[in-house]
Amino acid sequence: MERRRFLATAGALGAASTAGCAGLFETDENTSGRGGEPPLVANRPDAVYYPTHIEQMEMIGMGSVGDAKVGLMYSYPHRFWTMESAGTQRVNVQESDAVHLMATLWDGDTGTVLSVGGGLTLSITQDGEAVSGKPPWPMISQNMGFHYGDNYALDGDGTYTVTVRPGSVGARKLGAFQGRFEGLEPVDIEFEYEQATRNSIPYKTLDVQGQKGAAELMEMDMMPTSTVPAQGELPGRVIGTGSSGDADIVATVVEDPSFVDASAYLAVSPRTPYNRVPLPLMGLSATVSRNGSAVYDGGLGEALHPDLGYHYGAELDGVQSGDQVTIAVDTPPQVARHEGYEMAFLDMGAVEFTAE
C-alpha cells in the first residue's frame, strides 16, 4: 500500500488506562551497549505470540495540540512489519538508524488514545537544520498498544527539536467527542539525545518467546496506552462474540441511544487478545437476519465514543434475541506491527453468531 494513502485512512482509538509504572522490565541483565536484536523465532504461530524481547522507553516530552495532548518517546531502533498489498513487509534496522521514535496522541479529559485521519507527521531539526521529515507509521505493539512510530537517523549526541503535526481525527465522533479533535495544531518538543542514555534503556530477552500470548501493556502516570472497554464494561447489550485471525470480536447493541438519531446502534469492537488493544483501519460489514430475511445489511464505519471506545458501528432498527448475525472482515487492520503481532490479524474470516 502506498504510504501516504495508508496514513490518510486512520481513525480514532479507544479509551485507555493509566497507572504507576508496571513491573514489565527486569534489571537483572546488562543492557548497556546492546548490539542488534535476537534472531526471530523459528516457526512463529499464525497468532499473537510473545516476542523475543521487550524494552523500555526514554520519555522525550509532551505537548498540547488544541484539545488533545501528544507524548514522544524513543527506544532502540528495531524491526517491524508494514502492511502492503501482497501482505506484510518486514522493515529492518539500517546502520544509520539511531532510535525508534514513537508518538502517542490522546484526549486529556478521558485518556482516550487517538489516531488522526490526515496522518500524523514528525519533522526533526537540529540548530534549525533538517535532520528527518519522514512520517511515522500508525502501528501496534504489545507493550505500547497503538502509536505512531518509525526508525530515525540522528546526527549524533546533541539537542533536537521534533515538530509534531497532527491532522484531524477521521473517525465519526459520538457523544461528548462530537465536534472535537479538528484541525489540531502542531507543537515543537525539544530533547537532548545521548547515545549512552539510549544504550542504558532496560532490555530483556523473554524465555517464553514464540509461545502464544502477549507481553503486558506498559502503564505510565504521564500518558495513557490504548485499550478498549472489557466486554462486561461495554454499554448496551452484548449480543455476541467471536474470533477472527486471532482477534477478539465483541458486538453490542445500544437501544434508544442518545448519541445518534436511531432506534438502536450496533457497535462492533475488534481487539487484540490478552491486552484489548483496538484494531484500527479495518473494513467491516454486518448482516442481521430474522426469520430468513435480512433486517440490516451494510457497512460499519469507524467511530469513537467515550464509553464504547474505538469501534465500528451503524444505526439500525434493532437486534432481537435469536437473530442471526454475521460480521464480515472486508479489510484486515492496515497498521504496522511490532514483533509478536505480525503473524496475526491477516487471514480474517467472518464471525457468525445467534444474537443473545
Score class of each variant (00 low, 15 high):
V113K: 07
D107Y: 06
G36M: 05
P45K: 08
A350W: 02
A19Y: 13
T27V: 11
E352R: 13
N291E: 15
I249H: 08
A350F: 00
G33I: 01
T18H: 07
D46E: 15
E129M: 09
F177L: 08
R79P: 00
D157G: 09
M144V: 11
V65I: 15
T110A: 07
D188P: 09
R165W: 01
L284S: 01
R165H: 09
G340Q: 07
D330C: 03
L300D: 06
W81L: 03
V335I: 14
L40T: 03
A10W: 00
L316G: 08
V41K: 04
P273I: 12
R90T: 11
M102I: 14
L266F: 11
A171F: 02
V116T: 13
G133H: 04
G20M: 10
V113R: 09
A47L: 02
L174V: 03
F181M: 07
Q320M: 15
S96N: 13
M282H: 05
P39Q: 08
F353G: 10
L316F: 05
S123I: 07
Y203I: 04
K134E: 12
D188I: 09
S244R: 05
G292P: 09
P332H: 06
A264V: 07
I54S: 01
E84R: 13
L308A: 07
T88Y: 09
D317H: 04
V254Y: 13
L184K: 01
R290D: 03
R44Y: 00
L122Y: 02
S123P: 03
E129G: 06
V260P: 00
D28K: 12
P273G: 12
